[in-house]
Design a protein around this nucleic acid. Structure first.
Lengths: 226, 226
DNA sequence: CCGACTTTGTGAACAAATGAACGAGGCCGG
DNA sequence: CCGGCCTCGTTCATTTGTTCACAAAGTCGG
């Protein structure tokens, strides 16, 4: 058991919002006053103020009544809670369009996620470099993961290959997977998976769009659904 | 009011799952039997069977008891429900790493989302072609949207530019926005926004990862959280 | 035509998440 | 030191979403 007060169960919905608060706080850090109210933070994060207060209360974070939250302290708390006090080495599998874009994307490194390895099954790609990192063959996955203490895997392969890559990642000891392939992958319970599917997002938008044009006069759609 | 039985309010959570069902159905279409059970569909979509049945029941879709759902008919229903009976022209704003990858990504066109226009604010990029489409200046946005009947905008700019681009899109008449920029954007109520943030996803994974390693013996994380 | 077997559709219990409301606790001006 | 003011932390009612469990409705073999 950790020594932190954070052992209390934190709701999934709250966890998903912490990164958003984090970003907002980073934006005001230094520049503005040293404290921020739940109201202001809520506005920046695009949520309700009561929600912010409740979310933050889960890990016993002290704001000061009448004043607000100390920005620096809150930043520290959220970072600690999210496990961002150290870097996370990641491996990206599949260096097609998307994989390469991800490998080149600065926003990763910025936020403590280091591209520690790249893998692909195409021999033509193996040995080339992307953003300074050598592409290895998928067979070397296990070694790479062990050597470089990688715990996060990003799947950017075509759908057909996703499950196999996921299996290999799990076998290699990876515990968290971010899946961009347009397929549902199955993993053991103790592995976390999150899925990002561009086409799905567009189709959801399409639904509300269609509704709008269909029902004359009845607007309203959805708000920032993350 | 439409003539379909689908005017009943469909829960947001259900809408978000329809594209997943759609994909699963496309996979079995033709190849296997002409019908599919809720159980099988649930397995493919990575959800609970009861959920599938309830979801499908919202738009009065007829399965046949004792048999299952007719794959082709269900495909048609879901497509219609999602407004995928016609193509949707989209505009992508911001042709950095991610924007270019998106423009080149086949999975879009495949599913009825046509990249009808590309825009950027960098004069050096204007006039070049990406995947056969000419990059235009952001000032031409309004004209492009009007000319090409664009209703979906994709923001792939740096965070700092996102809000302004969103404002311009809204002004130009776009009603749905997919936001990849790491910023919360504010739009009028009648515009739908969905946000995809890679760093946020990784940070969520990081949270559960940290938890796992922190609490010896207490595994469990989250399942395919969409 | 009947009875066994499947699988849907849905009512109801349960769980999670939200948002409003308000008391408690702390600052500040006088 | 005190009263007014601000903002957090928490409680509660409501809404939304999930899951179970079972009757209804259909198929199929004989």
């Amino acid at each position: 058991m950790g020594r932190t007060p954070s052992t209390r169960e934190i709701p999934e919905a709250t966890v998903a919002r912490l990164p958003v608060y984090l970003r907002a706080l980073q934006e005001v850090a230094g520049a503005e006053l040293a404290t921020i109210s739940s109201e202001r933070l809520a506005e920046m994060a695009g949520v309700n103020a009561a929600k912010v207060r409740k979310d933050l209360s889960y890990f016993g974070s002290y704001g000061t009544r009448g004043v607000g939250y100390d920005v620096e302290y809150l930043l520290f708390q959220i970072r600690r809670e999210l496990g961002l006090t150290h870097d996370w080495p990641c491996v990206i599998a599949g260096l097609g369009n998307l994989g390469q874009a991800l490998a080149n994307y600065g926003g990763f490194q910025d936020r403590g996620f280091v591209v520690a390895a790249l893998i692909d099954s195409d021999p033509a790609k193996v040995g080339t470099k992307v953003n300074g990192v050598v592409v290895c063959h998928v067979d070397d996955l296990a070694d790479l993961v062990a050597d470089r203490a990688i715990s996060i895997g990003v799947i950017a392969t075509p759908g057909a290959a996703a499950q196999e890559v996921a299996d290999r990642m799990v076998a290699a000891g990876i515990t968290s997977i971010l899946n961009f392939a347009p397929t549902v992958i199955t993993v053991p319970d103790e592995v976390s998976v999150r899925k990002v599917d561009l086409a799905v997002e567009l189709q959801i938008l399409s639904f509300y769009n269609e509704r709008r044009s269909g029902q004359t006069g009845g607007p309203s759609g959805l708000e920032n659904a993350g």
